[in-house]
Design a protein around this nucleic acid. Structure first.
Lengths: 208, 208
DNA sequence: GGAAACAACTAATAGCCATTAGTATACATC
DNA sequence: GATGTATACTAATGGCTATTAGTTGTTTCC
């Protein structure tokens, strides 16, 4: 009865609460191992009621993906909106790391998709990764791809993607091994320090 | 009738063929999303026949894990059997990378366990990772942990584990993005070159 | 050659899955 | 106040799940 919030923030709609619960579960268990009954349980409704908000399981999954992609696509677009300098690559990578720490679900979902497939996997690849690997659209006459001058592109792109993604997807094990929260502020700083060091090493790499 | 091999190699037993099929499926889909019916289909028998060889699904999973762990535990034991020099760490990491390329299933299985849990996950952590993170047993009076002198241990350990594991678990997506086999000989060489460069960068890192 | 062990099969179980149909309640609009 | 629209519910479906029981044929051993 006292739950009628008068504050500035709206109480989330049922559809939003479904998306929240489904995002966590899809990220943890993957598409096929996630049951609509469990999603409904977390929201506090019965599973057939989900169909008032989403056409079916696949549509719910697609909506979860769409919401995540909207957040995570921004940084790369911004990077490509100007000259790609080493400094801006560092800044871009740092932004991405912070984003994954703030919400680890996209990385987890992507990892499930890479391992097991599932609906819309190709769309995921195209929208999240393809832009990093393809030669960039020409800007000011020059066509540069990330890390191009190191001679190890696209392996360097994969390597740094691996660093960021696997930290997130392995976090439950690391939590156990470290005895501390892998998403704490200190942990984030340590990971960033290491990644920046490695990034500089790649910038200076001229071939063995 | 002509299938009675007279050659040196024995035809694999039914139990071994079950293990092979189950390993691939568990690695692809994870524990709960793998059905015994599908395992049986691949072997060419009916699912109740599996129970002639394994007590139940969990015992089959455990047997798959055991077989994989036997292969993958060797290199670290060997590394710790002597002085831990930078050169031997490089050699050890190279061995591990080659092992994961030869059989990507352990990395995939481990990734599923990290994301979703499942039976024996704690045992997996303890046997595969704990030795890398804990201070090593004293050998010749000195107690050294890997990467200790860089000041970023255990983050460096995690980072290189991430590099190796994620390359394997993301391989299906990379196959699509690269347009070539991520487990080919050339791909392996490229990955090794990059990892060695990064490893040397960490050895020389003294703190920002 | 009879006995025992082994490994395949079919049939049947209880439980969970996504999904549909039909129904009840509340709220907004005319 | 009547009429829709939205959103919850219960009940029921057919399919898939792991697992058990019981049966049949084949191999191994004395």
């Amino acid at each position: 009865m006292d739950s009628q919030a008068v504050s500035a923030e709206q109480a989330p709609s049922t559809a939003e609460r479904i998306l929240d619960a489904a995002e966590d579960l899809f990220a943890e268990k993957g598409y096929s191992a996630t049951s609509l009954g469990e999603v409904a349980d977390r929201v506090g409704i019965r599973s057939p009621s989900l169909y008032n908000h989403f056409k079916n399981k696949e549509a719910l999954y697609e909506a979860v993906l769409e919401r995540l992609l909207a957040d995570f696509s921004a940084p790369l677009s911004e990077l490509e909106g100007g000259q790609v300098t080493n400094e801006r690559i560092i800044f871009w990578l740092e932004t991405i790391v912070r984003q994954h720490h703030a919400n680890p679900n996209l990385a987890r979902l992507l990892q499930h998709a890479a391992l097991s497939g599932g609906p819309h996997t190709n769309a995921l690849i195209d929208r999240l990764f393809r832009p990093m690997f393809e030669p960039r659209a020409e800007i000011e006459g020059q066509s540069i791809s990330l890390f191009e001058n190191t001679g190890l592109q696209p392996w360097a792109v994969m390597a740094f993607n691996n660093l960021v993604m696997s930290y997130v997807t392995m976090a439950p094990m690391y939590r156990d091994l470290l005895g501390q929260d892998p998403f704490s502020e200190e942990a984030l700083e340590k990971q960033l320090a290491l990644i920046k060091t490695l990034l500089k090493a790649v910038f200076e790499y001229k071939g063995s």
